[in-house]
Design a protein around this nucleic acid. Structure first.
Length: 292
DNA sequence: AAATGACTCAACCGCAGACCT
DNA sequence: TAGGTCTGCGGTTGAGTCATT
C-alpha cells in the first residue's frame, strides 16, 4: 500500500459507527456514475485507505464496498469471461494443494479475482460433488478430480494447442503463465503416497495424454465428448499405466463424460466446462461406491 | 406468453490480523 | 501497550438472467 495514503488528507478524521449510520450509506449494485467517480479518484490519488477514499471521493459507500468494487470489477487488469480450461486445471490443482485459500489461488491466475474463483468453485465444482453425492473434500471426489477431470482438461488444452499450433506456436492464453512457470502434480495412485509426476505443464501435457484414453473424434464431429454408441465396452489402448485404476474403468469414465451438454456458460460445444449426464453420474457413483 | 426453477455472480457480512495513535 | 481503525479474507446472500415447462 502506498505510504502516502496512510495520512488522513481528507477533511474529517475517523468516522465513527454512528456517523456512518447518519450518512445514509448506499448499498447494492453500483451505478455507472459511482464507478466513474471511483475510477477517476483512484487514477489521481491511487488506491488504498479505502474509508477515507470513500469519503474524499464523495461516494456514499463504505470503504469496504469501494475496495471490493475496484478489486473485483473496475481494476483495469481484471479478466472477464469464462474460466478457460487452463485456468480450471490450475484452480483444481491449487485448491487440492491449498484448500479454500481463494486469494492465494487468485494470485496464480493473473486478472482473476478471489471472488470469481470462489464462485467458480461453488457453482461448478461443488455442484459436481453434490450430484455425485459425495463431499467435495472427500477422497473419492478428489480422486475424480485428480484422475479424471484434470486429465480431461489437459487433453482439452492439448487439443486446443494442436489446433492453434499452426498459427500461434506455444501460446496458452494471454495473461497466463501456465506454459512458462506452473508445475502440476497430477499423476500417482493416491495423493498421499503417490510417486507423483512433477513436471512442467508442457511435458505433462505430453505425459498425461498417454495416461488416459484418447478422446474420441471430437475434432471431426464437433461434439467434444458425446458418446454416440458403444460407450461401455469399447477398448481404447493406453500406452502406460492408468493411474492405478483398471483400464476399463478409465476407458468407461472417459467415454461417459459429456462435454456437449447445452451450456450454462458458453453453451454447446463451445463451453469450457465438463459436464456429466445422468448416466454418467450413476456410473461414477457406482465406481465410487465400489471404492473403484 | 407466463410461471417456475436453476444458475450465476456481484455484493454484503463477520471475523482476524495488521496497523496506527 | 492498549484501544481504535483499517484491510483482507472466506462464507453467504439475493437479484438478475436464462432455460424449461
Amino acid at each position: 500500500m502506498d505510504v502516502h495514503m496512510r495520512g488522513r488528507s481528507c477533511s474529517s478524521s475517523t468516522t465513527t459507527q454512528s456517523e456512518e449510520e447518519m450518512m445514509d450509506l448506499r448499498r447494492g449494485p453500483w451505478t455507472v456514475d459511482e464507478d466513474l467517480v471511483l475510477v477517476n479518484y483512484i487514477a489521481i490519488h491511487g488506491e488504498g485507505r479505502w474509508n477515507s477514499l470513500a469519503r474524499c471521493a464523495g461516494l456514499k459507500r463504505t470503504g469496504k464496498s469501494c475496495r471490493l468494487r475496484w478489486l473485483n470489477y473496475l481494476r483495469p487488469d481484471v479478466r472477464r469471461g469464462n474460466i478457460t480450461p487452463e485456468e480450471q486445471l490450475l484452480i483444481l490443482e491449487l485448491h487440492s494443494r491449498w484448500g479454500n485459500r481463494w486469494s492465494k489461488i487468485a494470485q496464480q491466475l493473473p486478472g482473476r479475482t478471489d471472488n470469481e474463483i470462489k464462485n467458480y468453485w461453488r457453482t461448478r465444482v461443488q455442484k459436481h460433488a453434490k450430484q455425485l453425492q459425495c463431499d467435495v473434500n472427500s477422497k473419492q471426489f478428489k480422486d475424480v478430480m485428480r484422475y479424471f477431470w484434470m486429465p480431461r482438461l489437459l487433453e482439452r488444452i492439448q487439443a486446443a494447442r494442436n489446433n492453434n499450433s499452426a498459427s500461434v506456436s506455444g501460446s496458452v492464453h494471454p495473461g497466463s503463465d501456465l506454459g512458462q512457470q506452473t508445475q502440476f502434480v497430477v499423476a500417482g495412485p493416491t495423493p498421499e503416497n503417490s510417486t507423483a509426476t512433477t513436471t512442467t505443464s508442457d511435458s505433462l501435457l505430453t505425459t498425461q495424454h498417454h495416461q488416459v484414453s484418447p478422446v474420441s473424434d471430437y475434432s471431426t464431429n464437433g461434439d467434444y465428448f458425446n458418446p454416440v454408441s458403444d460407450t461401455q465396452n469399447n477398448v481404447i489402448p493406453t500406452s502406460t499405466t492408468n493411474l492405478g485404476y483398471p483400464e476399463t474403468v478409465i476407458t468407461q469414465w472417459s467415454d461417459n463424460w459429456d462435454y456437449s451438454q447445452n451450456g450454462i456458460v458458453g453453451g454447446g460445444g463451445e463451453s469450457s466446462e465438463i459436464y456429466l449426464n445422468q448416466e454418467d453420474f450413476w456410473f461414477l457413483q457406482q465406481q465410487l461406491c465400489d471404492g473403484i
